[in-house]
Amino acid sequence: MKILIVDDSMTSRMLFKAYMPKDGQHELFEATALPDALEKMREMRPELVVLDYNMPEYNGVEMAQAMLGAGLKAKFVLLTANTQRTVVDSALAVGFIQVVEKPVNAVKIAALLAQVA
């Protein structure tokens, strides 16, 4: 599966990558901000887009809205430690399939990949 992770933090992207199963089944692409993410989506056509919530210019939910607005479709997952009701509801309203709580670990990522497979 092609996966795009969008997070301004290099450490967060590294953590996600480190906990991905090393089974050759997945291809991971990275983006740090909206323009880069839109470009990667057009080029790579990922099936799954994992977005951080807390980013400098647009939050993850706003980015997904922009992607959908540009006609780019994928399964969206929000990655955040801010799992309060208003944040989760705003993600679900846009069509996110899941909210994964930071910090990630191997168990959370395995459960996510099993769900979207």
């Binding site: 933090s9 450490t11 967060s12 919530y53 430690a81 801010n82 799992t83 309060q84």
Partner: peptide
């Protein structure tokens, strides 16, 4: 360090 702080304070926000 910034990511650790952001995760920590986002949890606090929740």
């Amino acid at each position: 360090l910034r990511e650790l702080a952001n995760v920590g304070l986002s949890r606090a926000a929740t």
